[in-house]
Design a protein around this nucleic acid. Sequence first.
DNA 1: CAAGCGTGGGG
DNA 2: TCCCCAAGCTT
Length: 380
Amino acid sequence: MAVAFRLFALPVSRFYRGLRHRAQSCHRRAVPAKLPSTIAPHLLAWYDANARDLPWRAPPGAPPTDPYRVWLSEIMLQQTQVATVKPYFAKFTARWPDFASLAAADEGELMAAWAGLGYYARARNMIACARQVSAEHDGALPATEAELRKLSGIGDYTAAAIAAIAFGERAVVVDANVERVVTRLAALEKPLPSAKPDIRALADTITPDARAGDFAQAMMDLGATICTAGAPKCLLCPLRADCAGHATGDPERYPRKQPKRARPHRHGTIFWAVNGDHVLLVRRPDKGMLGGMRALPTGPWQDEKPGLAEAPFDAEWRMSGDSVQHGFTHFTLECALAGARIDGHTNPRSGEWWPLADLDSAGLPTLFAKAAKRMREWEC
DNA sequence: CAAGCGTGGGG
DNA sequence: TCCCCAAGCTT
């Protein structure tokens, strides 16, 4: 009681400064060889009572669900949050319920179905993977991490996650959630990405032999709902007593990260060509931004405003005076909007005339969906 | 191996 | 508003 009173009597800033000082003094200490052995049982007990109910997930302790659904969800969840994935997962499993149907899918239809989910290389890799599974594995996913790792779109994380979740193999599953949870549990001062080998070694020490799939999903649920990047809810955390980061008083400090470079700002022009009740769409090259996606024609994306450079054909283009802003991972883009009405005889160098009434089904990435919305208002 | 690659939500 | 970040993979 006396201790607690003195704690609260201490000015808050001094309290945290003291704790931070303790954290700093750990800096020179070697990376801990292991974490408390109580972590896995505590976490699994918490998961049994608190697991999220997700369409691709078996309940805690239950046998695994269809590997196809596990695989599909893992691909969609790469760098993408659960709430965003849910409607896409429902759409895809209804349209393509297994590897055979996906391997036979029309690529254009699949890319359009993926539109809006981002990181479009995932969709192309997904088809390639489904075809590999059909051609080389008799239509069934291999069950080992090493075999899974060879398939398109499956890296270290996804191979481990599928092996553990779909096949019950013990595998060390490390994603951004696990990195955050582990660096906090250990109060690890070494910054990402150089700390990745240490994080994996620490995760290995707490991964149980049994229920590896539940354990991996429990770590991710914990990271997504309690051990969040900002404002972690330590009071609700089943691992609070095992957590060195919580003991420092500043768990948000972890994981330490190298500073990122500022995102440059680029300019472009989007061309809105209307021919009767059709608009001109093109297909972007497979490599590069928005690769393989249907799109409105654009000129170059560069530091200076490109004006009407690289218009899809000669016409009386008019700048709408409006522009569309869009943020990508490593730059922001501001596009001017140029419109033209033309007669039925003009032949663009490439592309297709798409019915305006059916534009929603074209599967345009968000940048172009925004531009189309603006230009349709401008037309009126 | 560092850089390229989307998007939407939250602080 | 702006910045950070998320169930990463590929080259």
